[in-house]
């Protein structure tokens, strides 16, 4: 199966948004996800990124982008301003994990979070072999990685429980971007390279 823009999580997210929805993409890069959602799902989109090159690329792509530091929260955004707030493959680079998750669900009705799963069996094997994992979803060497938080699917679900967040949907992908079908969270934790969640909070 081929995936849009080589990003299997993009296809999942596209399936979760409805035409007319307001979508905020945190760490939007060049705006590729928003462009996809705008052209195929007719949403209204805004991105946030801190890098000059990404802000320029997003504007070139015709995407609304706000240059801002996610570590400082989402103060420029009003409560409940968005239907979906997306944090795609970025949570592991954010130091203030709880703060950003709370902020996402303050400004948005639903949060969509994807992240690389460190408990994926290939990653575990790499560590057992004595080396930090480098893979499709963890494409960095330990010394040049932007990642500052290393966690697993089960770790994330435990945090969601602690924070009182509701997991609406969970999709787990292998390195090829194929959906992993398994019943128990333990098996998913072992077999999944990338996890994608839809979260809400009780209102």
């Amino acid at each position: 199966m081929t995936h849009t823009l080589g990003r299997p999580d993009f296809d999942l997210i596209a399936g979760w948004v409805e035409p007319g929805h307001r979508v905020l993409d945190l760490g939007c890069g060049d705006g590729a996800l928003l462009k996809l959602l705008i052209t195929t799902r007719n949403v209204q989109g805004w991105g946030v990124d801190i890098e000059d090159a990404n802000v320029l690329a997003a504007i070139r792509n015709g995407i609304n982008v706000i240059q801002s530091n996610l570590e400082k929260g989402l103060a420029d955004f009003a409560d409940d301003a968005f239907d979906h707030v997306v944090l795609s493959r970025t949570l592991q680079t954010v130091r203030h994990t709880e703060h950003i998750l709370r902020e996402m669900l303050r400004v948005g009705r639903e949060a969509v979070v994807s992240f690389p799963n460190f408990a994926y069996w290939q990653n575990l094997r790499s560590v057992l072999d004595g080396r930090m994992p480098v893979s499709e979803d963890l494409p960095y060497q330990w010394y040049d990685s932007p990642n500052v938080r290393f966690f697993t699917l089960l770790d994330f679900e435990a945090l969601c429980g602690q924070m009182g967040l509701t997991i609406v949907e969970r999709r787990v992908l292998d390195e090829a971007g194929e959906i992993v079908l398994a019943d128990s969270p333990r098996d998913l934790n072992f077999l999944g390279s990338l996890a994608v969640y839809r979260l809400t909070r009780p209102r």
Binding site: D52, V55, A58, V65, I66, D76
Partner: peptide, 21 residues
């Protein structure tokens, strides 16, 4: 400038913001 941006965003307006070094 961010005050302007926040007020536009609160209205769902199409806005981009750059903070240039």
């Amino acid at each position: 400038s961010r005050e302007i941006v926040a007020a536009l965003l609160a209205n769902g307006r199409k806005v981009s913001y750059a903070e240039i070094d």
